[in-house]
Design a protein around this nucleic acid. Sequence first.
DNA 1: ATTTATGCAAATCGTTTGCAAACCT
DNA 2: AGGTTTGCAAACGATTTGCATAAAT
Lengths: 149, 149
Amino acid sequence: MSEPFEALVRARLQDADQRYTTGRQALVKVLGGAQRPLTAAEIVEVGDLAQSSAYRNLAVLEACGVVHRVSSTDEFARFELAEDLTDHHHHHLICAGCGDVADFTVPDRLESMLAEVAAELTASGDFAVEDHRFDLVGRCRDCQARASA
Amino acid sequence: MSEPFEALVRARLQDADQRYTTGRQALVKVLGGAQRPLTAAEIVEVGDLAQSSAYRNLAVLEACGVVHRVSSTDEFARFELAEDLTDHHHHHLICAGCGDVADFTVPDRLESMLAEVAAELTASGDFAVEDHRFDLVGRCRDCQARASA
DNA sequence: ATTTATGCAAATCGTTTGCAAACCT
DNA sequence: AGGTTTGCAAACGATTTGCATAAAT
């Protein structure tokens, strides 16, 4: 567990007067090892910690800007490391069939345009943009196969 | 209640062997009168129908492609009329403070680019895009004022 | 007449919380 | 020691569901 972002995580927690406990390290490790947002159930299973601790620590990590919450089409919240820790700006493919979420990236010229629109809106004063979501909702390969079966 | 889309709604329900009952008409009317997605609680209050009926009918209307479910940052689902009924393609400004959702539109050249990316992905076969979401998360005017107070 | 929708109250289930024991500094 | 975190079990709350009645065709 010597990921490049470990030090950053520690710093962010310290800034918020929070400890970087074993449980929290486990969460960061699990999320850092996944290449897609995970549900609380998945995290609990792999991370080997109580459900309540998982939720409580995810909340702490979210408040410190370490973890980001992702919503899908199903009833489960999903969690991933904040983008500025992984340095991997991405968007989500959300499967309307199974709820699974996968990461994907878009061309730079599209990102610039998204940023431009956001900047204009913030400049207007009506809405201060903090983040953008560009998600595609559809069917993953598995659910396409399932539908045509 | 003679909105231009009333006939379309009726047709869609009929296609799914569903009745266009008074309760469902009330829901469509309420959603048609709002210029933003509404929570179930808001709908129940204005629409004067039981909560269970509201949820059940929203589910039916959603399955028929009449209503669209929108997720925000809070725990409440929000509902709006499907875009192809209102003929008003738009995106959402999601307030991270109060959870409120407002509609907004983006320049055509951005929409084309979004569509292009979606089409490429679908062509690849890995993911069949059915819909895109471009949402901006931030602070509405009220929550900006509240934060600086 | 028969099928479907309604309202009420109870159940469901992801998530949150109270509390006593274990942990860190 | 003093404050924080943990795990368990109970509570919470938005949404769903069972069932008897009312409405629609």
